[in-house]
């Protein structure tokens, strides 16, 4: 129970970072998708069965905070989490040494997918721009690098049990 509350608090703080801290820090430019990156990094280390509820909560909190339609980000996060988890288990499981690169690859793919899906669901790609997408990927990768090492350092806090992954 305590670990579930801790995860909820982490998701909540990630939402606040994304909607209040980063918009003030990068005024008028691209803001990194902190919650999305967190969900993808979790998915690259845990099974989808353990992640899907967190993905829903992440999307739900984010939709509340950005005045979006509730469920839009949640559905995007769930699908991305499934794909990240699926790819990791099917293709990347043996490549333990490349875990960092794999995580960044998943973040890149997830960012593109989330960009397209949320843009399509909210304003039908009216604002679609390759330049903005590239900036979004870059900013997400920067956050992912930082977060990757943070999660690796504090596995317990982020609810990661590496041994489970290795047993598979």
């Amino acid at each position: 129970m305590a670990s579930k509350i801790r995860i909820l608090i982490i998701i909540f703080l990630a939402v606040i970072l994304e909607t209040s801290f980063f918009p003030a820090l990068f005024a008028g430019t691209i803001v990194p998708d902190v919650v999305l990156v967190l969900i993808i990094l979790w998915s690259s280390r845990k099974k989808f069965e353990d992640i899907w509820l967190w993905a829903i909560w992440g999307g739900f909190f984010l939709d509340l905070a950005i005045f979006g339609k509730i469920g839009i980000n949640a559905v995007s996060f769930v699908v991305i989490s499934f794909m990240a988890s699926f790819l990791r288990e099917r293709f990347f499981i043996a490549q333990r040494t490349g875990a960092f690169v794999i995580a960044l690859t998943l973040v890149t793919g997830g960012t593109i997918l989330n960009w397209i899906s949320t843009n399509f669901l909210t304003n039908f790609l009216v604002n679609f721009s390759w330049k903005l997408l590239l900036m979004k990927i870059t900013s997400n990768l920067v956050v992912a690098i930082f977060m990757y090492f943070l999660i690796a350092r504090y596995k317990g806090v982020f609810g990661i049990n590496e041994s489970k992954l290795m047993m598979k």
Binding site: F48, W52, I56, F60, I70, G71, V78, V79, F82, F86
Partner: peptide, 20 residues
């Protein structure tokens, strides 16, 4: 089992969108 979870999750999200 994974697919069932995925379908359930998407169903929850769609339900959320519908009651908006």
């Amino acid at each position: 089992s994974k697919l069932i979870k995925l379908i359930l999750a998407i169903a929850i999200c769609l339900a959320l969108i519908l009651i908006n």
